Computed example of a mutant assay.
Amino acid sequence: MATRFPPIFLFLLMAFPALAGTQWQDLEALRKGAIQFAQQQGAAQPGTVTVNAVPLDPRLRLPACQSIDFFIPTGNRLWGNSNLGARCNAPSSWTVYIPLTVSITSEVVFAARPLGTGQKITEADILLKSEDITQFASGVITDPRQALGKTATISVAAGYPLRLDMLRAPYVIQQGQSVKILARGQGFQVNAEGKALTNAAAGQIVSVRSGSGQIIKGTAREGGIVEVPF
């Protein structure tokens, strides 16, 4: 007479391969789990994330695991050639590092023509290309709005990708400019005249010499205004 196993036993066999006689961890399942984790981590990136991982060495013998946590090792990030950690919590305890290649395809902002130091960036100055941004230095610009209206801080050759550290917001206050000091507090407001000692973009802190000779620091605003909170 054939032996019939209860449904719960069959479920356990499917849910926990170790119970079915599988002694070692499924390396292909581990590889696919690492790829899925990396793709989820890259979901916030500005583009399409592609993750590849070569098959793990079949000679690797890891006890079958029921609870695996994937993690990004300290000092690493999922960018280009990377490593992802996989840690078994139960029933055994082991950690393995899985090599990954992560590419992120996105539009990148390039200089359409030579840009000079101090030049304000317009639409005619940029062009977009679809590239793997992991192949560029950190801070490469992927959104034209991050470049338009900004000022180049260095000369940039035509065809070169723009980075955030190459540009700055335009100055709303110039060194030596006469400014209006606007001091505000609860229930009062005081206006005074002064002279800017430094350049500043909107929202930056600027030093100002007041009419009495006092050095004041405040926040630069459009229209030559420096706000000083009290």
Rank of each mutant, 00 (worst) to 15 (best):
T48I: 15
D125Y: 00
V102Q: 06
A158D: 11
I225R: 10
E107W: 13
P55Q: 08
V109M: 10
P58L: 07
K195F: 04
D69G: 05
I98G: 01
G118T: 03
S92P: 00
V109K: 08
I225N: 09
S67Y: 15
G187C: 04
G116E: 12
V190W: 08
E28N: 13
G139N: 00
I215N: 10
A90D: 11
E193P: 00
V226D: 06
P58Y: 05
V190D: 10
L60P: 01
A112S: 09
N89W: 14
T151Q: 15
L78H: 11
L27A: 01
Q41T: 12
R145C: 01
M1N: 13
S130A: 13
A38K: 09
L197K: 01
D69T: 06
V228P: 04
Q146C: 07
R31Q: 03
T105W: 15
P91V: 07
V49G: 10
Q45E: 15
S93K: 15
F230S: 12
A169S: 14
K120M: 14
D143S: 08
A15L: 12
P73N: 06
P6E: 14
A158C: 11
I225M: 09
L100R: 08
G159H: 03
A220M: 00
P161T: 01
L167N: 00
V172R: 02
A34Q: 04
L162M: 05
A44I: 12
E28Y: 08
G211A: 14
L148F: 08
N199E: 07
R163C: 11
N191Y: 15
E193Y: 08
G75L: 01
A53F: 00
A201G: 03
Q36E: 15
Q23N: 11
Q39N: 12
F11H: 14
F136G: 04
V228K: 05
I104Q: 04
V179A: 03
F9S: 12
Q135S: 13
I133F: 02
S207E: 13
T117S: 14
I205D: 05
W79V: 05
L19A: 06
A15G: 08
P55K: 07
V208N: 01
I121A: 07
